[in-house]
């Protein structure tokens, strides 16, 4: 990680020195803008009290936490919880399952959002466009419990309509709900159905800002629809895509506890267990709060590394990063 830091510092040094102010000038600045700072205060207090304050609880990852003894009273155990976790035979399986699901979601669901946004953008009939938009937003507002129940109905063994249809088409007899090979496709499909429409909102907003003159110029030059999308639309929303990608990668390991928990059963647990369900299972149902906090903390650290890594990569390729 040394290289990116040096790189970032070098880049920072080349920028005009915006933040370097002397104390005296800062107090003048502060006096001038005091009402704005006061306005900022509730936000700062909110983050301090509700976001940063509770973080001291993370210390139980390094303790043997007993609720009765409290966070402060429980004995320290160092990195015992972490070494236990890494030595656990479950660890490689959890990491693998989490990463595979994460990359499937990122590799399939994320591009599909852009594709759907582009498709919607190309619809010229305003009534149709609005109707479709509304329809694809709706699934986002259904809870995972409902999505899972729908899946159970549609794929129910022998009687589910999709079970019958797909097995007839493929000439097979697959129980989609319990076959480990079908767990991931099912999860990704649910995710696409539920979230793709909602995800288009930001891209549609970005698409609305694309300069219409460029299209007209391109049409005069004889560019077809695909050319126009490729050479005008996509480059215009490139920075939005990058920002959304960085955010998506930061959230990548949050594979969605409810969805996976609801779709898990004894026959597919092998491929279904991810960090989130493991934390619930070990932490809440077995009362191993310290251990599961350690697992959660590990997951957060990986998330931070991913965010910084992607941001750095984006800057490397001369794109504007997130920060």
């Amino acid at each position: 990680m040394a290289a990116p830091v040096v790189e970032a510092e070098a880049r920072a040094a080349n920028r005009p020195p915006v933040r370097e102010r002397k104390n005296g000038r800062f107090s003048v600045h502060f006096a001038h803008y005091k009402w704005l700072y006061l306005l900022l205060l509730p936000g700062v207090v909110y983050f301090a009290v509700f976001r940063y304050g509770p973080m001291y609880g993370v210390s139980i990852a390094f303790k043997d936490y007993v609720p009765f003894l409290g966070v402060n009273g429980s004995p320290w155990v160092g990195v015992q919880n972490f070494t236990d976790f890494f030595a656990n035979p479950d660890f490689p399986r959890l990491l693998g399952n989490t990463l595979i699901l994460a990359f499937l979601n990122l590799g399939i669901a994320f591009p599909l959002t852009i594709v759907l946004a582009l498709l919607l953008n190309e619809v010229r009939l305003s009534v149709l466009k609005r109707t479709v938009q509304t329809l694809v937003y709706i699934p986002h507002f259904l809870s995972w419990t409902i999505v899972a129940s729908l899946s159970f109905l549609l794929f129910a063994l022998d009687i589910g309509p999709l079970f019958q249809f797909l097995n007839n088409v493929m000439g097979t007899n697959i129980d989609f709900l319990s076959d480990p090979a079908w767990f991931r496709p099912l999860i990704v499909l649910q995710d696409i159905w539920k979230n793709t429409g909602w995800g288009t909102i930001i891209f549609l907003a970005a698409l609305a800002t694309v300069d219409q003159d460029q299209y007209e110029a391109a049409i005069i030059d004889g560019a077809g629809r695909f050319r126009r999308v490729w050479h005008i639309t996509l480059p215009a929303i490139r920075s939005t895509i990058i920002v959304m990608l960085i955010l998506a990668i930061g959230q990548m390991l949050n594979t969605g506890f409810e969805q996976i928990y609801l779709m898990t059963n004894a026959l597919n647990r092998e491929v279904a267990d991810v960090f989130d369900t493991y934390v619930y299972f070990v932490g809440i149902t077995q009362g191993a709060y310290s251990y599961s906090t350690a697992v959660g903390l590990f997951k957060s650290l990986v998330g931070i590394v991913l965010i910084f890594g992607t941001n750095w990569l984006a800057k490397r390729f001369n794109q504007s990063g997130l920060f």
Partner: peptide, 21 residues
């Protein structure tokens, strides 16, 4: 400390055996 995880090994295997996996 880890009984529920341990028991899951056997419990899941039992269902897998019955299902023919």
């Amino acid at each position: 400390a880890k009984g529920a995880q341990l028991d899951n090994i056997v419990a899941d295997a039992r269902i897998k055996y019955l299902a023919g996996q």
